[in-house]
Design a protein around this nucleic acid. Sequence first.
RNA 1: GCCUUGGUGGCGGAACUGGUAGACGCGCUGGAUUCAAAAUCCAGUUCUUUCGGGAGUGUGGGUUCGAUUCCCACCCAAGGUACCA
Length: 938
Amino acid sequence: MGYDFKEIEDKWQAYWAKHQTFKVSNHSEKPKFYILDMFPYPSGAGLHVGHPLGYIASDIYARFKRHKGFNVLHPQGYDSFGLPAEQYAIQTGQHPAKTTQDNITRYRTQLDQMGFSFDWSREVRTSSPDFYKWTQWIFLLLFDHYYCNESNRALSISSLIDRFDKEGNQKVNAVSDGKIPLFSASEWSTFNMSQQQEILLGYRLTYLSDTEVNWCADLGTVLANDEIINGVSERGGFPVTKKKMKQWSMRISAYAERLLQGLERIDWPESLKEMQRNWIGKSIGAKVFFEIKGSDKKIEVFTTRPDTIFGVTFMTLAPELDLVQEIVQPDQKEAVDAYINETKQRTQRERMADVKNITGVFTGAYVLHPFTGDRIPIWIGDYVLADYGTGAVMAVPCGDQRDYDFANQFDIPIKNIFKDVSIEKEAYTDKANTIIAHSDFLNGLTYKEAMNKVIKVLEEKGSGAGTINYKLRDAVFSRQRYWGEPIPVYYKNGMPQPLSLQDLPLNLPEVEHYLPTPEGAPPLGNAQDWAWDEKARKVVANSAIDHKTVFPLELNTMPGWAGSSWYFYRYMDAQNSDTFVSDEAKNYWQDVDLYLGGSEHATGHLLYSRFWQKFLFDLNLLPVDEYAKKLINQGMILGTSAFIYRKPGTQIYVSKDLLKSDINYEPIRVDVNLINASDELNVEGLKKWQPQFENAEFEFSDGIIKVGREVEKMSKSKYNVVNPDEICEQYGADTLRMYEMFLGPLEQAKPWNTAGMSGVHNFLRKFWKLFYQNDSLIVTDAVPDKKALKVLHETIKKITVDIESFSFNTCVSSFMICVNELTSLNCHSIEILKPLTVLLSPFAPHLSEELWEKLGYTESIVEASFPVFNEAFLVEDEKNYPVSFNGKMRFTLSLSLALDNEAIQQAVLDDPRTMEYLDGKAPKKWIVVPNKIINIVF
RNA sequence: GCCUUGGUGGCGGAACUGGUAGACGCGCUGGAUUCAAAAUCCAGUUCUUUCGGGAGUGUGGGUUCGAUUCCCACCCAAGGUACCA
């Protein structure tokens, strides 16, 4: 019978389920280790072979850590709110909850058959009211806090109100939306409730505002910046335009500096940290005020080059700024309005694609230079972005290429303020070699000196100050969707009123249709029962709204990243109905030790979750302010799509090797499952696959049709999906697990191919044969010989080091070498096979459990401790040391493994070649390359 | 353009802090077993060669007794980002 993986895997999966083998406790004498996977969105297509890659890796590590004596938290759950279920609901009327449940069931079956050691008793689902109750609660906390710059943390709104009552807001240094006027304590007391609420909203960490948002008409919703790729929606590829809407936003910008600093303390991939740094986009510079000529108003600009202030020859404003309307002169008004209209017409995408075309228009107005008092013309131009800095730039054409080009386009003078530098052809942007000239008190200074000096003078003069700017924008939090967390807020006199914890969860209402209402309100506008009774504190029918005690509830829902921003703490205490996570659980588990997931979440989930973490940390609700110590990005497994080539205008398909270069064939994707290992098409299968091929004709090459292949993302629509179920069926889960690891380095993207599968499967069968011959156990209790022990201990060392550094692909190789050597040594000793079984169990847990039981151990192999290698067995056989000589060599370093071994030294000295070579002299220094060469210096 | 990562046989990929480049697997070639096939086992497999060797880790330089590894310049690929003042 041999290695019957089917029977073995079924047996042990049932055993693990029955004994709750992987259930973990929140108390233990053992040290803790928390291994987290990014939880999946349960899509209708089920898992393909790419999904489990990261789960296999984390499972190997989890099992390894258990063997090493850690109490391991290794949970799994579902990111189960999302657009696909909702779109499916729109098409079919099927409730998204139902679709989601079906998909989860399918996912669970697939995950279970791969033998993962998840503790399913801690499963979470973001769409479950037990879970989103706490997501809503965190929203309320954000609503109830503001960011205090003095203490550099979030503080409660009530403490802000106290300060307003006592001293107004003049001395308050807090992050706000910047439009709040200064007021005294007595003024504050004269404001009515609505006015006060309006002001407070400007400070809250989640706030309502008129925001220019990315509107996607085809999806009927707002998108975050990271949901837009190249100006079109990430999902569906629909155009995105700008639109002003009342939206909830999260004041993530308050945490910009701490999000940046925190990166220094976490072990995440450098490329990912760099992405976050760029996204946060810190730049150091100065703000400078320019007085508008003939007005008492000032224009504030942000610049990173205040040292070049004497080179300013014009100013440019973003066309969208309200200020433009205030300053535009009558004789330029027509031109300015025309220009503004023109820019509004163009989508963001067109504007981005059209970088080279320089456009702009003069407003007719002037500002005054803060030092020279010169008159400086104000232009508008779409190269200036309204939402970065102040939307206004001081243009220094000699020092900035865009300003230079703009000046040339419109014949604006260019003033050279750099010493001994030509700016005939282009602007001079090299900061490091800058010496300032023609700049009054800055003459002769370097960039750094001039920068410090000018900031000092600006501050003394009250015309500016050193400042720091970030690209990071506040995150829009409202989505016009049904299948998301309801925002726990109702509206009273137009002002948002938060629910409180005891009102939660605010359950998603039932609706008839999942589309926006005919009036254009979000889908929740279709609900019959979506009003809040303030007295009874419960949801009631809309018809009861009286605006005295019953009010309308918020119609927007939360974005996809809400639930995923904190789910990893819920796993610690998933069943708790009193609190989001108990003190006991969070103090024990603290944080995630290893987080595995894709790098595509770099500027989305992985940034937002760090933000919430820091916020909850400020409130003393979480013990640490970075939740994941180490993060690894597993690479994507790509699909290899197959193409057949159709002669244009015919139903004739031509084998790839017969294609003629003068004909434009139409490549057509076909299902990869119709292709064999030699890229040959299953013609009969194709005819049955889709009706369009029923009457297809073929131009064969030697009776076969060769297909073209291309590596691209694995996706249902590209017909290149390979399903893990079939592989498990054919080779077993253990083979699949090992093979996915063997495919290449974990972090690298790699195309899926099954070519090497048989090699890995063969290895497992050979492993089996170390224990069995003709179906009977051949394990002996004979004392193993030295060679076998050496093989074992080399393998233990290699596997230990490789698992710790996540090189799982080389582990598989080491196993293969080990088994091959033991086979040729004919070694079946239990003293070798027992540790080997433990060694293998993270990779092939089913097979290992089976063999473990056969070796006579009653407890599960999960309990076994990982073998420790013994250095003694690793020392090379002395006589096999090859000795090489090179008289001219002079060595400065000494590598020292076997140097201390006198037997080795003596063996080398006794070698006739050494004696001839040394000619009686004593060696000064030994250079030993471990296991390889000895060089002697004298 | 900028940032990050990478470039090694026919293929996936090894090579620890510089130390016999190509481990391991796939594929291929030959052999054993078999009536035959599958499966299994054994041997070979970087290129080149006049069989002594010679060349070789994207390209060109450099440091070193010695470089896939370190330094400089360049080329290519993937991912990210893009008028950020």
